[in-house]
């Protein structure tokens, strides 16, 4: 049987909010090392890779490897029924066709359980090679979300240019043209406000705003976001999930034809 418990539902609620607009459904692959989900959006332009380690759960039991195909919209509806400070337990029997979510209130007075049918999803799985990226930018997640939102008003594409001076986000269209330049910080007291750029060689890449804005739905999960870039390969936008794992978004670039 499979059973995974988190002492409060907040993180799981944020994870669903981070993926449910991009993906309609996804397979939760469970093993004794934890839970993995990898799925592309319908257009095959972006991909979500979620990793939750078993040691990040307050209780985790997985007797046999289990793949649970979930309708993420339905799962998000069920999680809306949980209070942030409820304990959440996900349970499924081996080779079951349903999964149960149990929410227990802090004062133990209220226990709710929601059962959802599982789906048979034969989703394409992509092999993503370990890559040594030309540029890796770590910056405040709120800042990144703000820039993506602001620049989407000017164009459906954002050009990200990363050099040793800093990283520049540009967009231009009928309204006009916008450039947001962030310099690397050197002496910030709070780590999560730092802008750190590890550059092996400069890159200039173009991406669709609407996917970047879909990725920033994960902002509540982390203070920082990490952007990994190399010429003419997909962008990786990573949000760490404290003590549990991470969510990585991959986005294919737009390339001059």
């Amino acid at each position: 049987m499979f059973e995974a418990r988190l002492n409060n539902a907040t993180t799981l609620k944020k994870i669903l909010d981070a993926i449910k607009d991009l993906l309609n459904e996804g397979t939760f692959d469970c093993s004794d090392s934890g839970i993995q989900l990898q799925a592309m959006d319908n257009s095959h332009v972006s991909l979500v890779s979620l990793t939750l380690r078993s040691d990040g759960f307050d209780k985790f039991r997985c007797d046999r490897n289990l793949s649970m195909g979930m309708n993420l919209g339905s799962m998000a509806k069920i999680l809306k029924c949980a209070n942030n400070d409820d304990t959440v337990t996900i349970k499924a029997q081996d080779n079951a066709d349903t999964v149960t979510f149990m929410f227990e209130s802090q004062n133990q007075e209220k226990v709710s359980d929601y059962e959802m049918k599982l789906m048979n999803l034969d989703q394409e799985h992509l092999g993503i090679p370990e890559t040594d990226y030309s540029c890796v930018v770590r910056m405040p997640a709120m800042e990144f979300a703000r820039i993506c939102r602001d620049l989407a008003q000017f164009s459906e594409s954002v050009v990200i240019c990363c050099t040793k001076e800093g990283v520049k986000f540009s967009a231009s269209g009928d309204v006009g043209s916008a450039n947001v330049k962030l310099a690397q910080t050197f002496n910030v007291d709070k780590e999560e406000e730092a802008i750190v750029i590890e550059m092996q060689e400069p890159v200039v890449l173009t991406f669709a705003c609407r996917y970047l804005n879909a990725f920033t739905k994960a902002t509540p999960l982390s203070n920082q976001v990490q952007l990994s870039m190399s010429a003419d390969v997909p962008l990786v936008v990573e949000y760490r999930i404290a003590e549990l794992g991470h969510i990585r978004y991959y986005l294919a670039p737009k390339i001059e034809d």
Binding site: H44, L47, G127, T206, P234, P253
Partner: peptide
């Protein structure tokens, strides 16, 4: 104008 690519042009099916 830049053309949107598909992820499967960069990563092969596992």
């Amino acid at each position: 104008t830049p053309v949107q690519n598909d992820l499967r042009e960069f990563y092969c099916l596992a």
